[in-house]
Design a protein around this nucleic acid. Structure first.
Length: 429
RNA sequence: GUGACCGUAGUUCAAAGGUAGAGCCCCAGAUUGUGAUUCUGGUUGUUGCGGGUUCGAAUCCCGUCGGUCACCCCA
């Protein structure tokens, strides 16, 4: 009977979940590095004011915040962008522009857990600072696409919904709508596909607009809109534009985005957004009280929705399965068939491990049949039998079920030679 | 923060007011130097927790905690 449980919204990572998490984070890291991004890391705990400054007081309702023993207000970070802005602006002169950085780490939000959302999740963030060009936006979108493809998720499985805050600013200017209504208006647009049409009409009416003129504008905002021209040229040249779907209703939450906004969405499972991001040119100035006015753009991808998507996407399952197998398997299992040979077996275990070979063996005397079963359970590729024939040892290929006898003195090089061969056998197609 | 449904062994689930059970998993054996299958035996519960109704509660009621889902939000 478990007396203790995990705190609400938090997860245990048993080995299988840990392997999945590592596969995800290692893939993120590998693709980001391929794109020339450098890894950095910010603290998991920050001053609550850091997040209030970026998002306003009302944000504290969703913050995992405390008072520490010195009565300081601190928060488990709900996102890493404010920390990034703090770090980048503090030492921006030390770094050549553009700054291309990424971070992988846990974030926390005090919300009701449900599908695809807990109170703790791992987030991948990639950002480019000090560059205003659409090329930077394109680089980020391309990275998000290539991350998905690296996982084996293809164009059939996901799309990138793209929009730009500027087109709405233009629209509001043309309609002579006061700038004070911008946030309200974007909130309505964000929900326009889900809200009741009557409510939308009423809310738009309150700021002097009609659903019809908004819908008409949205329909006209296609991929030929001038706001997307540079992005389209860039991503077309990369062969990636086919992943893009212009969707003017993409707003991405609060008001800090200033230009390009995009979301990675799965096409088949109606999940939450897998990733989201955009351009936020004013944030560094805000966070540094105007000392450093550095343009920026970035996106974030969480592990939870992505993990659900990978498990449900056939094209992603092969890589996922082999990653999980690699994490849970060993190269060889040492069978101690004759306890008198245990010291020799232990010596071999040490030598094999020193050579970088993944080895396990039984701690106590066990029947040989049990030991082979243990080797099987550990997903070992080979069993190495130390028995009465020592100094000869038997190496058995557990997949092909073939075996050979070699001198104990050469067991390391023999096993290395065998491991270098491709995996073949009746159990592997 | 709001609402709905749920909570029984490690796990998946039975037991619909009357003695808490089964499959799987795990451990041991059948099998003293080779992995399967099968068979045998074994461990585990204040039925999430607390209160109430009742002769009697896993079952009905209230509260609480947790899970799932939706709302809110999604930085």
């Amino acid at each position: 009977m478990a007396t203790f449980r995990t705190v609400k919204g938090f997860r245990d990572f048993f080995p299988e979940e840990c392997a999945l998490r590592n596969y995800i984070t290692e893939t993120w890291r590998s693709v980001a590095r391929r794109y020339g991004f450098l890894e950095y890391e910010a603290p998991v705990v920050e001053s609550t004011d850091l997040f209030r400054k970026k998002s306003g007081d009302e944000i504290t309702a969703q913050l995992f915040c405390f008072r520490d023993k010195a009565d300081r207000e601190i928060t488990l970070r709900p996102e890493v962008t404010p920390s990034l802005a703090r770090m980048a602006t503090a030492r921006q002169r030390d770094f050549k522009k553009p700054i291309k950085w990424f971070q992988i780490g846990p974030c926390f939000r005090y919300e009701e857990p449900q599908e695809g959302r807990g109170r703790e999740f791992i987030q991948f963030n990639a950002d480019i600072l000090g560059d205003t060009s659409p090329a930077a936006d394109a680089e980020l979108i391309a990275l998000s696409i290539d991350v998905m493809r690296e996982f084996g998720v293809s164009a059939e499985d996901f799309t990138v919904r793209l929009s730009n805050r500027e087109i709405w600013n233009q629209f509001l200017a043309e309609k002579n709508i006061s700038a004070e209504h911008t946030a309200t208006f974007l909130g309505i647009i964000d929900k326009i596909e889900r809200a009741k049409p009557d409510d939308t009409e009423t809310k738009l009416g309150n700021i002097g607009l009609t659903t019809a003129e908004v819908r008409s504008f949205m329909a006209a905002a296609d991929e030929n809109h001038p706001a997307f021209a540079d992005l389209k040229a860039n991503l077309t040249a990369r062969g990636l534009w086919s992943f893009i779907k212009i969707d003017a209703s993409i707003v991405r939450g609060l008001a800090y985005y200033t230009g390009t906004v995009f979301e990675v969405f799965d096409l088949k499972h109606n999940l939450r957004a897998v990733a989201g991001g955009g351009r936020y040119d004013k944030l560094c100035a805000l966070m540094s009280d105007g000392n450093v006015d550095m343009p920026a753009a970035g996106f974030a991808m969480g592990d939870v929705v992505l993990g659900i998507l990978l498990k449900r996407t056939p094209g992603a399952q092969c890589a996922l399965t082999s990653a999980l197998l690699a994490a849970s398997s060993i190269d060889a299992f040492v069978v101690v068939a004759d306890e008198a040979q245990r010291p020799h077996a232990l010596a071999a275990v040490q030598a094999l491990r020193a050579a970088g070979i993944r080895i396990d063996y039984p701690f106590a005397a066990q029947k040989v049949g049990k030991q082979f079963q243990a080797a099987e359970d550990r997903k070992a590729r080979f069993a190495i039998v130390f028995g009465s024939e020592y100094p000869e040892v038997v190496i058995k290929n557990l997949i092909a079920r073939s075996q050979s006898s070699v001198p104990a003195a050469s067991v390391v090089e023999e096993v290395q030679k065998l491991l270098a061969e491709p995996v073949v056998g009746p159990l592997i197609a």
